[in-house]
Amino acid sequence: MSDEVHLYPYLVLGALLFTCGVVCMATKRNAIGILIGVELVLNGANINFVAFSKYNAVFQVEGMIFALFVIVLAAGEAAVALAIVLNFYNNHATVDVDGADELKG
């Protein structure tokens, strides 16, 4: 019995995180909550990248670079999204995203 951990648990973890994120995004009405869901989705994907980087020689470098890329992207995205949220709050005095329906067709 080897102590080595396989790829699959990582993937399952990633998928779990991803699903949690999506569910969080779909259910939360709080903008901050949705942002948290987005972070979860991104990190679920990140776990996948890192796992592939480790267990698949082909993606050794790419996996890590993509992971770093996603982290940087997530940071940027969080900054922009929080700015939007703040502005939204300034305008609507709430962070309930259901109130943002001006673009409704």
Binding site: A26, D98, E102, L103, K104, G105
Partner: peptide
Amino acid sequence: LRNVQTGYLRSYVL
């Protein structure tokens, strides 16, 4: 197709 554009963020995610 207008009806699809609900304007609710959550439904888009869904």
